[in-house]
């Protein structure tokens, strides 16, 4: 396959940035999208140009590091996969592909297609855990959990923290990400003790980091590579409401 790529290049966070156009040829349909980028980068280095910087690590769809906005959609045209799992057989010979970084106020661009997602870490730090220390916990089977509840928690816990939900949302809202963690711990017995403070603190941090409000349009769910359901957002709203009406904070 021969392709034309329009790629966002930006030297650093202070630089204004813009699109550059590149040609790649002899691309095999069995290549992953990122392998196609590897080929392009080798080509750039061989012609004394700076390679394109993009985040990637596990290349099997689980670390959450890769983050490309491909033809106007986070992680590209296919549903329920990350960019690293996207293969070139999803494109056709002669295509022009536009590649941009995640765009959100809370995710500033670091360089080219690399963005800073540490805001997600700070939201988890605000309460995305059960406050127990190592040791001194009961035997694992002393906390029976129905298969149904365990599955519900697992569905929410599969979030990889890639930020596609934010990138897809016109308000750059992080509700899907935050609600996945809130839901996981709200349905499990282990999460009950801190149930109220958790949702209050995580939502407050989400707001402070500059993420927008939920639009209720469901773009986040549509692009989520792990198919996290927006039911989690509904649950978080309910959790938040319940926490607020009995909250000691004014």
């Amino acid at each position: 396959m021969n392709l034309t790529l329009k790629v966002w290049r930006q030297k650093n966070s202070a630089d204004k940035g813009g699109f550059e156009t590149y040609q790649v040829s002899n691309i095999s349909p069995d290549m992953s999208f990122l392998e196609m980028f590897d080929v392009l980068n080798e080509q750039l280095v061989n012609s004394d140009q700076d390679p394109i910087h993009f985040d990637h690590d596990c290349r099997e769809g689980i670390c959450g590091m890769c983050s490309l906005y491909i033809n106007g959609k986070p992680h590209g045209p296919k549903d329920a996969i990350t960019t690293c799992q996207l293969h070139m057989r999803s494109f056709s010979d002669g295509d022009t592909i536009v590649v941009e970084p995640w765009r959100a106020k809370a995710f500033p661009v670091v360089k080219d297609l690399v963005v800073d997602r540490t805001a997600f870490d700070r939201i988890i730090q605000a309460g995305g855990y059960v406050s127990i220390n190592t040791g001194g916990v009961p035997d694992a089977n002393e906390i029976p959990i129905s298969k149904e509840v365990a599955n519900e928690a697992m569905d929410a816990a599969t979030c990889i923290g890639c930020g596609a939900c934010v990138a897809a949302c016109k308000n750059a809202s992080a509700m899907l990400f935050v609600s996945a963690k809130v839901s996981q711990l709200a349905v499990l017995p282990q999460g009950q003790v801190e149930r109220k403070s958790r949702v209050e603190n995580m939502v407050a941090t989400m707001d402070a980091e500059g993420f927008g409000a939920c639009t209720n349009t469901g773009a986040c769910e549509a692009v989520c590579p792990k198919e996290i359901s927006i039911t989690n957002i509904a649950r978080m709203n309910r959790e938040y409401f319940q926490a607020k009406i009995s909250s000691k904070k004014i």
């Binding site: 855990y129 059960v130 127990i132 190592t134 040791g135 916990v137 009961p138 035997d139 694992a140 906390i143 959990i145 129905s146 298969k147 365990a150 599955n151 928690a153 697992m154 816990a157 996981q184 711990l185 499990l188 282990q190 999460g191």
Partner: peptide, 14 residues
């Protein structure tokens, strides 16, 4: 034990 206490959703029997 530790991981279950943290809320790790291991697979369960009925």
């Amino acid at each position: 034990d530790q991981c279950v206490a943290q809320g790790v959703p291991f697979a369960r029997e009925y």
